[in-house]
Amino acid sequence: MTTEFQLRPYRAEDEDEDAAIELWRRTWQQAYPSIDFDARVAWWRERWRSELVPKATIIVAEDANALVGFVTIDRSGYLDQLVVDPAHWGSKLASALVDEAKRLSPDGVTLLVNKDNARAIRFYERNGFAHAGEDVNPTSGRPVLKMRWAP
């Protein structure tokens, strides 16, 4: 794993879409091996195209010209996706992407995180997020924590 990466805006006209979708699939498969994320790729591609790309700012991270992470943040300050290649877990990449989301939404950032994802919860706490309630993910039905960062 190298620790050199560059952040840049997502480019829909390039090959960013395929790389981002594959990174999402691979990362979530690692996080939740009992779920078949291959079967969800068509659904995710549609959601990516119809919900995230048109409504969110997407910042990607590249390492050696390969997409290794991305963050999506909408105008309301909602961070929908923070995805980091498992080979970069534990590096500074995720924090750099969260810092970029904070920069883009200086009045505050909110997110939902699966309650059973202790690693992610600890990460967000270390990055200044506080617990702001509980909910259920409308797509997966999984219990989630609401978290918020306020400047």
Rank of each mutant, 00 (worst) to 15 (best):
V83P: 08
A150D: 02
P9C: 03
Y32Q: 06
R26H: 11
T57N: 04
G133M: 06
A96L: 02
E100P: 02
R142N: 09
I59Y: 08
D116P: 01
A20C: 15
A120K: 13
T57F: 05
V41W: 06
W28G: 00
E46T: 15
Q6H: 06
D80M: 05
M147K: 11
L23H: 09
T27R: 11
R119L: 02
M1H: 10
L23F: 08
D74T: 11
E17C: 11
A12T: 05
S50I: 01
K146G: 08
R45C: 10
R40Y: 12
V136S: 11
A120H: 12
D36S: 10
F5G: 03
A66G: 05
E51R: 14
L104I: 09
F123D: 07
S95Y: 03
E15W: 05
K55T: 15
P33I: 12
I58L: 15
I35H: 05
H131A: 14
R49C: 03
S50V: 09
E62S: 02
I58T: 08
P54H: 09
E134P: 02
Y124M: 14
L97D: 03
E62K: 04
T3W: 00
L97A: 05
R126W: 04
T72K: 03
E13P: 01
R49T: 02
D14A: 15
Y32I: 05
F5W: 13
L67R: 05
G128F: 00
F37C: 04
P151D: 06
N114Y: 13
R40Q: 15
E100A: 04
E62W: 02
D36A: 06
E13I: 09
P33W: 10
V109T: 06
E17I: 10
M1S: 13
N117L: 03
A31F: 09
N127M: 00
G90S: 11
R49W: 00
L104W: 12
R11F: 08
W43D: 11
P138Q: 14
R142H: 12
R75Y: 08
R126S: 13
Y124V: 14
W149P: 00
V98M: 12
K146S: 10
L97N: 04
W43I: 01
W149K: 02
Y32C: 00
